[in-house]
Design a protein around this nucleic acid. Structure first.
Lengths: 236, 236
DNA sequence: CGGTACGTTGAGTCATATCAACCATAGTGG
DNA sequence: CCACTATGGTTGATATGACTCAACGTACCG
């Protein structure tokens, strides 16, 4: 689909389709976002915002995939999360009124709505249900972050890679042939797992040798999810 | 101070003293907490709540120190945070209405107020300013968690230990003789850093050899904070 | 066709985990 | 009061997972 064929999405429709936070808004509130928002297109590699930037609004993803990462030692990225249709990013910086502490970069060409900070403040202040849902969302992310800290501190790279693959299956799904719907570079994978690129490569081909996955370039076919689960030690 | 000498604290006073979240409440609201709360004492080793527990309220720390941790592989703890005077814990589970995903255990004898969930819900729904502050708090914790993920994924144990020591200095302070005001077992230290107890012991005595710290049992005297900063690689 | 980014493999090294033994301390119960 | 036990701390020896460095292969792109 070329950009010219993409129409500015209606928030109410998008919110329902994507099960986003905005389904907790009233008709008038959704109209307000529709009116205030700025619809933008980005291509793979484009950066929405960078660590240290002051951002005067947040982004709601209508389509495509964004990676959100922090830059650590020697510029190595640590991917914190992905954002896809219905997800919002940068809201943390808006709420805290602090410069962004992450960078957001497009992985799959994306359509994104930029919504001014004031709109968020207004809703938070006047719509307790929305406010509560946003808080739930934040709490959920916090819980995930804490779990990941425990994982990364205690599990081996092998376990973590298996776990990451399963997370990707859960978040992005498999196509009819069991191929993971998202494709990442080996480096990106290593930046989620928190390891060296070479380690990811070696472990992936181990998994392949054990008939857990097949590799076709960046496309990963999942043959044995149960096996990956076993390796990942998800339970315990 | 013996338990019998400790009086039930007034939330308004406590809130101001400790700069807690509750300073954003109205007089009536503070009165409501004062009326609804349950004041409790705990000794070192006591557990306030455990992973998997359903909790119908949250805790506000009036004194003492609590460690909040997740249990990972082989029962190894990963300490997520500490809570001291003015901090609240377990609010995440209350907001999400999910079982606790952490355990809270007393490190230094503590006085704690237990506040029923409904009170929190009420305030969140009726006091946007409070709600906003709570959201800020959550966002702040989220940001810290994300930073720690990056650290733990990219830094060496040595760097992380130095960093943890500095964090402890920041959070708990030093006494007049530069002793860290909180004392932890080597195992607890290792459960923050995310490493083996033996590694902590070896690195601590390295730091001691480099005249960065002195060790007297569990008491740690900080001799050269700048040196620790250098090791920890905080800036980059 | 050369350039650039990504992927792969091998070899060597090192930090850290693991295992085991031992010491110090304090609390317990006979 | 003393052996007994538990808990925490320390040290040494050994094993190994994972990183680093380097070389080379591959594919796409202008």
């Amino acid at each position: 689909m070329k950009p010219s064929e993409i129409h500015i999405p209606f928030c109410d429709k998008c919110a329902v389709e994507s099960n986003s936070l905005f389904r907790h808004l009233t008709k008038d509130e959704v109209d307000k976002i529709n009116y205030e928002k700025d619809f933008r297109h980005y291509r793979r590699g484009d950066v929405l915002y960078q660590e240290g930037n002051r951002i005067n609004g947040f982004y709601c993803i209508n389509g495509g995939v964004i990676k959100v990462f922090k830059t650590g030692l020697d510029g190595k990225e640590q991917i914190i999360r992905f954002a896809k249709k219905g997800d919002i990013i940068a809201y943390r910086s808006v709420i805290s009124n602090e410069p962004a502490c992450t960078t957001a970069e497009v992985i799959e060409d994306a359509h994104v709505c930029f919504i001014p900070a004031e709109v968020l403040f207004l809703f938070v202040k006047t719509n307790p249900a929305f406010s509560f849902e946003l808080m739930k969302l934040t709490c959920h992310e916090l819980e995930e972050a804490n779990s990941y800290i425990t994982d990364i501190a205690q599990k081996s790279v092998r376990e973590r890679l298996a776990e990451v693959l399963l997370h990707l299956v859960e978040e992005f799904g498999l196509d009819e042939n069991n191929y993971l719907k998202i494709s990442l570079t080996r480096e990106e994978l290593s930046n989620i797992v928190g390891t060296a690129t070479e380690s990811v490569i070696r472990l992936l081909s181990e998994f392949k040798g054990d008939k857990l996955i097949e590799l076709h370039g960046r496309k990963i076919k999942v043959l044995n999810a149960k096996g990956l689960e076993k390796i990942s030690n998800v339970f315990n």
